[in-house]
Design a binder for these strands. Structure first.
Length: 632
RNA sequence: GCCCUCGUAGCUCAAUGGAUAGAGCGACCGGCUUCUACCCGGUUGGUUGGGGGUUCGACUCCCUCCGAGGGCGCCA
């Protein structure tokens, strides 16, 4: 688990230090897409970890790694499996696996030279190598090799993206609005990020279970049900369907605070609800259904995958709560504190520096969210059989989840390979760098935000694309508006706060959805004008201009971009790649005439490059949940 | 008070412990009028909040200080 830190680092004695010095093997690692200077290609670092991957796939760097693996083994004299994936690195380091590199005690340049000598054979016809800098191997691919790999990627329905080597069953917990409460900006990030992760995980071959952990249980439901009865069921249904959930909730709350009789009825209603009274449950279900219908309209507007089938509300864990307590008790973990049943996971302290408990049963005998989160882990691991549990929840809840998972580990419910990951994210800020609010200071309703995005998108299209029909303008404008909001959210490192800025996210310049969508539409436009159909999967690609080469190498990096985004649960990795791709395409487009190319084989080859670029843009944005218009 | 996250160009953001820290916007200079743009190229811009440490090598890891935000017993 997380190390609380604070310990003083032990001082190394100087002899030991001398003996351990000279790290130097520095095995092979893939260093980056393409080099800055146009002529060169991808580079390989004789620097850090071995990222040799086995299966043969379209990505040329993996091919190179495979070819070089024996060379490394010979040079390093290492018998061990040289496969270390990026995600294993931290683990490898702590286990002392990786630093085997450091045990050779030789100069990196010499090692690099030795690798170079051994590599010329295996890499013949693939790439040439040269030693550079403090022990880097620069790798320049042969054109013929790149052309071959590119053709292979184009024929692959997966566009060169590898499947996960060990597919898992993954639960993604995201969105999680509350019944009878409005969805606001706070739900934007969890919904969008969760949706993108689901799409990416499925794409690389994992089995994904979406779970929308809605807040459909607890004491507020007493007053909500009583308010529903006061209004009359038909009137209440009407109000809820209009989507004025906050109004409904506020009225109930106001009555609860002002009216003792109402308060009393509410309390009795909570008891009835928890006791399973059929009529109360029926009314409760009515509230849940009305809210779910409302959530679904929001999800459809936003274009995310969630449906009613994904609902896994807190109430569904209700039957498990007694079991949770029973098991904790049996494990000897349960303690009594101030009348409540609690567990003390080690490593957490409160304001006074005393151990901080996780309360699993309140003093009044009721359960709280910690209890249902515990039940939730049991359910996901034992019933669903998931090994990876993702919680796409805001950063403020980090400590809560750490405590819950710690208790799960102590109780033995959460053991490898099963593990939980908090996919946390920062806040959405206004231009004042404070929490994003309306001008009047209220929280921003999510529907309002979505509607404004669509309006702005449509306005944008009307201005720029007067030649499109009104219907098309609306259709495309919707994609642009929604895409802009999603992309702005996904394109920055999720852990950080970001500033919500309509003008920037809707700009056609810079790292934005409209820029990428436009690059795609532009390619489609070429094909509408072409008098022949050329698909990348049946046309050989020939690289002539440096811009073609740069684009080609970028296209081959799709696999790496997707893999990184998935492994780190960081959609912005994919965004950065797509932006780079669009920029490379634009450079190509400026420099290389496609339809007007003199030579027909070049023309076909360029059309093929265009086609593959469009397919990757389409697919890549699709993995982010962003729609891509064919014209705009 | 303790704990967590963040701090990178004027602005908005990138960067597995690797090469000279990169983009976009803005600004400045120069081109272009095109297979879809208000486009293209170039220049400008940095003590990566400060200081120390580990390392062959630190934006990245550790310590410390400063600043911003968040969390800390019966809400979720």
């Amino acid at each position: 688990m997380r190390d609380a830190g604070g310990g003083e680092r032990p001082r190394q004695d100087s002899n030991l230090r001398t003996r351990l010095r000279r790290p130097t093997l520095y095995p092979l690692s893939y260093e980056g897409g393409t080099s800055k200077d146009t002529g060169a290609a991808a580079m390989v670092t004789v620097a850090r970890s071995v990222t040799v991957t086995l299966a043969g796939m379209a990505d040329p760097l993996h091919t190179v790694s495979s070819l070089l693996a024996p060379v490394y083994r010979a040079v390093a004299g290492v018998d061990a499996d040289p496969v270390v994936r990026a995600s294993d690195r931290a683990d490898a380091q702590s286990n002392g696996v990786l630093p085997l590199a450091k045990q050779l005690g030789r100069n990196p340049r010499d090692v690099a030279a030795e690798v170079l000598a051994g590599a010329s054979g295996p890499l013949a016809g693939v790439a040439t190598l040269e030693v550079a800098g403090p022990g880097f191997l620069n790798l320049t691919f042969e054109d013929a090799f790149v052309e071959r790999e590119l053709t292979a990627a184009a024929r692959d329905p997966h566009l060169g993206v590898r499947r996960a080597t060990s597919p898992e069953r993954v639960v993604v917990d995201y969105s999680a609005p509350n019944v009878a409460k409005e969805m606001h900006v706070g739900h934007l990030r969890t919904t969008i990020i969760g949706d993108a992760l689901v799409r990416m995980l499925e794409f690389v071959g994992h089995e994904v279970i979406r779970e929308n952990h809605i807040g459909d249980w607890g004491t507020p439901f007493g007053m909500l049900i009583e308010h529903l009865l006061d209004l009359g069921e038909t009137e209440a249904a009407r109000e809820l369907s209009v989507g004025d959930l906050d109004g409904f909730y506020r009225q109930a709350r106001a009555k609860f605070d002002a009216d003792d009789d109402f308060k009393q009825r509410s309390r009795l209603r909570v008891v009835a609800l928890q006791g399973g009274d059929p009529e109360t449950l029926r009314l409760w279900q009515e509230l849940v259904d009305a809210s779910a219908a409302y959530f679904n309209t929001v999800y459809r507007k936003l274009g995310v995958l969630l449906t009613s089938a994904d609902l896994a509300g807190e109430s569904s864990y209700h039957p498990l709560l007694d079991e949770v307590i029973r098991r904790l008790d049996a494990a000897g973990l349960l303690e009594e504190s101030d009348g409540a049943d609690v567990v003390f996971p080690p490593g957490f302290t409160n304001r006074e520096g005393e151990p901080l408990p996780l309360i699993v049963r309140k003093g009044n005998g009721g359960f709280n969210y910690a209890t249902s989160d515990l039940a939730c882990v049991i359910d996901r691991v034992e019933r669903l059989g998931a090994t990876l549990l993702l919680y796409v929840v805001g950063a403020p809840q980090a400590q809560h989840f750490e405590m819950v998972w710690k208790v799960c580990e102590m109780a033995g419910w959460l053991a490898p390979p099963a593990r939980c990951v908090h996919v946390q994210f920062g806040s959405v800020l206004g231009s004042d760098r404070k929490m994003f609010k309306t001008r009047s200071g209220d929280t921003v309703k999510l529907v309002d935000l979505i509607d404004e995005a669509v309006d702005r998108g449509i306005a944008q299209v009307r201005e720029r694309s007067a030649d499109l029909s009104p219907t098309e303008q609306e259709h495309v404008g919707r994609m642009i508006g929604i895409g802009a909001v999603k992309y702005a959210d996904l394109s920055t490192d999720r852990i950080k706060d970001y500033v919500f800025d309509w003008d920037r996210m809707l700009s056609f310049d810079g790292n934005t959805a409209p820029y990428l969508q436009y690059a795609h539409a532009r390619i489609r436009s070429i094909f509408r004008k072409a008098d022949e159909v050329v698909a990348s999967y049946d046309t050989p690609i020939r690289l002539v201009a440096p811009e073609e080469r740069a684009l080609a190498l970028r296209l081959l990096g799709f696999d790496q971009a997707v893999t990184e985004a998935v492994e780190r649960f960081s959609p912005h990795r994919l965004c950065s790649y797509l932006f780079d791709l669009a920029q490379d395409f634009t450079a190509f487009y400026e420099a290389c005439p496609v339809l007007r190319a003199d030579d027909s084989s070049i023309r076909r080859s360029r059309l093929s490059l265009c086609d593959l670029t469009a397919r990757i843009l389409d697919r890549g944005l699709g993995l982010l949940g962003i729609d891509v218009p064919d014209r705009m």
